[in-house]
Design a protein around this nucleic acid. Structure first.
Lengths: 115, 115
DNA sequence: ATCGTTCATCGTAAATATACGATAAAGAAA
DNA sequence: TTTCTTTATCGTATATTTACGATGAACGAT
């Protein structure tokens, strides 16, 4: 046993996984797209653009807010959502980095007889 | 109700979400990193580099295999895993595209008085 | 043939995620 | 005020995920 069993994940690994989790549902992928196309959008409009009930969409918005990918601005009885530009730029950079590093490997694949 | 309720998600939305799901756990983020750094790696080595039991790691490897981010080559009693370069290149491009489009918006944030 | 190693799968427990109707809260409109 | 609209939250059902020990299958070594 040359390599000692590792004890924890790094903060970076946890962070990237958490962002990936926030984007791991088609509804949330779409909400991000919608908000960036429309710059901002009230909740009700988003609900109409998704094949889901209002309560469910509200949950998905909450998950995106959790990682600060979006923010909501209360506007009378409505809530206007928009992309959080700071977070978006950070994760864009972080994932570009991550993918770039993944692509750096020598790409010597094992024999391709897949299990 | 100007916008008719949408019925389904697009294949692209489903695909991106599915890849994000495959990367939504620190162990799987790390496995991809390890495999790309080492080019290839037998399962047992991966188990030693993660704070998880062998059965659990095997499950995570299965999830990465499901979306074809990695492949396994049976080598006697061992299994040698490596990154699937084709898939990696595809998703790198797809996510770069997705993030680029997200960043294209006019970035007029709603008033930042958050909920 | 038997044994040890390696890894996937099974069984299972606990936690988390997804979905929706119902309700509550908050403001606009009457 | 009363009512309507909008949205978050509650309650709840179901499904999926995560984790691990135990077992089984495949192979190399003895």
């Amino acid at each position: 046993m040359a390599t000692p069993k590792i004890e924890e994940f790094t903060n970076e690994e946890i962070f990237l996984a958490d962002i990936a989790k926030a984007l791991s549902h088609p509804a949330r992928i779409k909400i991000m797209k919608l908000l960036s196309e429309m710059n901002a959008c009230v909740c009700g409009e988003i609900v109409n653009l998704l094949p889901l009930a209002q309560a469910t969409v509200s949950q998905h918005l909450k998950e995106l807010k959790r990682v600060e990918l979006i923010q909501g601005d209360i506007d009378g009885p409505k809530v206007c959502y928009c992309v959080n530009v700071n977070t978006l730029q950070k994760i864009t950079k972080d994932f570009q980095n991550y993918f770039n590093n993944l692509n750096k490997g020598e790409k010597i694949s094992c024999k391709p007889k897949m299990k």
